[in-house]
Design a protein around this nucleic acid. Structure first.
Lengths: 340, 340
DNA sequence: TGGATAAGCCAAAGCGCTTTGAATGACCGA
DNA sequence: TCGGTCATTCAAAGCGCTTTGGCTTATCCA
């Protein structure tokens, strides 16, 4: 059932039917009702390809997916996606993943912009001076950054959590508990979130006249194995930390394993705090010693990003508003006063 | 730059240019060269919306994403996606995720089929008598199932791993090591993969005159917590198993925690084998006792599914060929002879 | 009463591609 | 020399929608 048939059977022009369906004002209310009615009754759905060709709008939001043999999408992505899907489902939005060579995403962004394949995109894992932001602005493709860049000339729309604040608070708590030597097991330091977290730790320590030594910081991809390695390194150094902050639950698994491997225990020998993005399949309260966390649902962020993208597409939102969400600090058994 | 402009500047008709570009035979080789050349030089890319309207082909593959407050995409999905992306990137395919109410995916399938939004779809987490298979066949939408259904009237194309064989082999090995009481901590038993795994265990036990008692089997969503609970239940029952097979690495984390919580150890008191889908962020060799696994890369499966979908789209593949991949059994420190 | 205004509807022109059906020459064998 | 092939090329008709620019009536006020 297409527009032609529908309008023919209503004995109206395609113009009028199209307008009636799309809520234009210049159509008689009764006519509109008749049209709407018939459309519903016959299950008429405008062909998106045609509509797209005519309007340039696709009703889809895009994401450029970095791929490559060495690249592996991390599990945070899927949680974010759940949130995005939650919103998208209720709003007739589909999501297009465009795989790109991880070393050259720009080509792909240009392609989807030129083709108008999607109405908007979201950008994840931003880094300082992230080139994607200026690129998208230049391409006039609406976007939202999940996370933040830094050192850019222009403002841009984003939603981020207060990584610095979260790690600042967590560190401050540890210091108040008497910890002086604090270690940080961070994610890839080229990404802004990791930079912010480190900054939070530094600032908190500085506030108490302490400093974060370089050798007390390890930054790497957030795998269990890297968590283990980092923890081993920190725990086997002299003047080992009495407390560690860790950027992910998955790394914390490795940290936990390292702690027990070197014969120490949490929280007796080591206080541990990790950031929790809220996975359904791995929860901090279920660590052998319940894990204290800085918590923020990445799924909720996904839903919010979708919501704002939808708003930008429909013109309800513009400008470069940044949104920073506070992070919960949840204290559980993994932290204790420093015994030293 | 569109076709009209390009053909105008070449002083050729749109027809000829289009044909030259699409490799039709009835165009002079020199003309084709000229056209190709000019197209490249001016960076001409046919507008996909237009092409789509004209041909009905979209160059995208689809996936209906079940969503809902209670639903959470599991991390296996992301690994599969990596594989899909690996292939798709090199072949100009995009992936469309259409979020659907988890209780009513059918509507969404119908929509994307009616709209011809995608050229093919893949189906995951199939169950016995999965209705999606017949639905897609009826809708004439090319598809590949990742996994298998069962009890269907017609054949269908799929790729699956030999879940039954894998768990059969693993169980057989445990039996040979002297284990008599073997437990199974499985995924959602409504899904075929879980059924097959259970079947593999049963068959192996039966082969040695043993049986899998109902109370030795727990089936639930594959989270750490469920792994823990299941293991607690099994280990605290009388006649507790001396060996456990586990359907996922994530559950195995919970099993490991339970084992240590009840004061037992691996492999002394309990031999443990888990299925490993090969995540980069959690590896069986890094368990506190290196974990024996049945291993099959879900990422590789993703790439293969993409490849076969592409083949079906271009007509190189048809029919209902099923493909079953063998699974490695990798022995590490987590299994030992039964002491009883 | 007549001209301006507004309400409601329509025909037709795109959007940028593919594909059908035909036309034009060049070439060939009889 | 002439009808028949073959190799190339083209104009134009879609694909199914939106949107522009009228075209009617009905309405209202001077």
């Amino acid at each position: 059932m297409n527009l032609k048939q529908l309008s023919h059977m209503l004995e109206l022009s395609q113009t009028t039917v199209s307008r009636a369906l799309n809520g234009y004002p210049e159509v008689n209310e009764e006519t509109r009702r008749r049209v709407m009615d018939a459309a519903k009754r016959h299950g008429y759905r405008p062909n998106p390809s045609a509509r797209r060709l005519a309007t340039g709008k696709s009703g889809m939001i895009g994401y450029v997916l970095p791929t490559g043999a060495a690249v592996s999408i991390d599990p945070h992505f899927v949680e974010f996606l759940s949130g995005l899907g939650d919103y998208a489902r209720g709003h007739d939005l589909d999501l297009v993943l465009s795989p790109a060579d991880a070393d050259d995403e720009e080509t792909t962004y240009r392609r989807i912009a030129a083709n108008r394949q999607v109405d908007a995109v979201y950008v994840s894992s931003p880094r300082p001076k992230d080139r994607r932001v200026a690129l998208l602005a230049a391409l006039a493709l609406p976007f939202i950054v999940h996370g933040r860049s830094e050192g850019l000339d222009a403002d841009y729309p984003f939603i981020d959590i207060d990584n610095e604040g979260a790690f600042h608070e967590a560190t401050r708590l540890l210091v108040q508990l008497g910890h002086r030597r604090i270690g940080l097991i961070n994610g890839d330091i080229r990404e802004t979130f990791a930079i912010h977290r480190e900054r939070g730790v530094r600032r908190a320590l500085a506030g108490s006249g302490l400093a974060l030594e370089d050798r007390a910081v390890v930054s790497s991809a957030m795998t269990e194995e890297n968590g283990y390695r980092a923890a081993r390194r920190l725990l086997e150094s002299d003047g080992r930390p009495t407390a560690i902050l860790c950027s992910s639950l998955i790394m914390a698994l490795g940290v936990q394993r390292a702690v027990s491997d070197v014969g120490l225990s949490v929280p007796g020998d080591l206080s541990l705090v990790a950031h929790d993005d809220v996975f359904t399949w791995l929860q901090p309260e279920n660590f052998s010693v319940p894990l204290s966390t800085t918590r923020s649902s990445i799924r909720a962020a996904g839903a919010r990003v979708a919501e704002r993208l939808a708003a930008r597409i429909s013109g309800l939102e513009d400008g470069a508003r940044g949104e920073v969400w506070p992070v919960d600090l949840v204290v559980r058994g993994s932290i204790a006063g420093a015994s030293v």
